[in-house]
């Protein structure tokens, strides 16, 4: 396995180097996606399945779709322009500076690696395992994210919502973007895959309590199914009522989280301090609402602006981006 790890590390470095130095944007995007794929394998090798799941869902899937759609929106000439002027980055000065920082980074990493060997493995894992029973869930990562350090997760969701607010403040977007190439294959594939996406998204959400998974990967898969629908040419017309629905869905995660915290405070436990017998159910409630909200927020960020409302019609069938 050591050889495998070595090759994996080498490929990662090559891809990063290419991603940063390649002269056209398309090549950079493709290198970045390949990097995301291999990085997830690296996380698997580091025995961090939670991060591998997040990397698989967000790193390669969502970012890939986002970057390709961005490339498609740019004028053709711009995507062909080199990111860095040719010839820069090959002089002796460049190699001197890069070489210096590279050597410095290597020394730093080596120092870290050698000092880690003196640390007790698994670090905070021991105390966490001791108190896992209090958390109400069986997966230590979920226990940290939604119980012991739930304030951090609350803030992450708030940041995501703030990002959506900023994106919407940029203006309206023509959401049902026209499908550029009519393909008989695409709608069929999407019809087959959408139920599978939804199934996987909710199974990831559900299993977060006892195995790697949870709100972020689940939400990302949910958003991915929405993006797939949009890409396949689904047209969405949002009525004013649908818009208010959408706003509730977007903010549900944060609302439920804050409400849970405040009502626990009112009951005398302290903000987001779960009593042991309710912890499991509370975490499930917060995680489910956060997962759906995260899915909607990531989809909204992909769309990149406030969806333009259709003129009010009584029979608008689609109100939620699912």
């Amino acid at each position: 396995m050591a050889v495998f790890d070595l090759i994996l590390g080498l490929l990662l470095v090559i891809l990063v180097r290419k991603c940063l130095s390649i002269t056209d944007m398309f090549g950079a995007v493709i290198s970045f996606m390949a990097f995301g794929l291999l990085m997830a394998v690296a996380w698997v090798r580091l025995e961090a399945p939670d991060i591998a799941l997040a990397e698989a869902a967000i790193g390669s899937g969502l970012t890939g779709a986002l970057l390709f759609s961005t490339l498609g929106r740019l004028p053709h000439s711009e995507t062909r322009q080199p990111l860095v002027p040719r010839g820069s980055g090959s002089g002796p000065g460049y190699w001197l500076v890069t070489g210096f920082w590279w050597a410095a980074a290597m020394v730093l990493i080596a120092t870290f690696v050698f000092s880690f060997q003196e640390l007790q493995t698994p670090g905070l894992g021991g105390p966490l395992q001791e108190r896992l029973a209090e958390s109400g869930v069986l997966n230590p990562v979920t226990a940290v994210l939604l119980n012991f350090r739930s304030l951090d997760t609350l803030m992450e969701i708030a940041v995501l919502l703030a990002a959506v607010v900023v994106a919407w403040s940029m203006g309206y977007v023509d959401w049902p973007a026209r499908q550029t190439i009519p393909s008989p294959l695409l709608p069929g594939v999407v019809r087959l895959l959408t139920p599978v996406f939804l199934l996987v998204a909710f199974s990831l959400l559900w299993r977060g309590s006892h195995a790697p998974g949870g709100a972020f990967p689940g939400g990302a898969v949910l958003a991915a199914s929405g993006i797939l629908l949009l890409l396949s040419g689904m047209t969405v017309q949002i009525s004013p009522r649908g818009m208010s629905w959408l706003r509730w869905v977007l903010s549900a995660g944060l609302l439920v989280f804050v409400l849970a915290g405040v009502s626990l405070m009112a009951a005398g436990f302290g903000f987001l301090v779960y009593p042991e017998q309710w912890a499991g159910n509370l975490i499930l409630l917060i995680e489910a609402s956060a997962g759906v909200s995260i899915g909607a927020m990531l989809l909204a960020l992909y769309v990149g602006g406030e969806p333009d409302m259709a003129p009010s019609q009584p029979n608008n069938p689609v109100s939620r981006p699912q």
Partner: peptide
């Protein structure tokens, strides 16, 4: 580690997304 089956499943699903985004959005047409 059976959990990596799940990671593989998520990968298999989401790899569709990139190619669909490429074909419908940034194919030089």
């Amino acid at each position: 580690k059976p959990i990596y089956f799940d990671v593989a499943l998520v990968f298999a699903l989401l790899s569709v997304l990139a190619v669909v985004a490429f074909v419908t959005r940034s194919w030089p047409h």
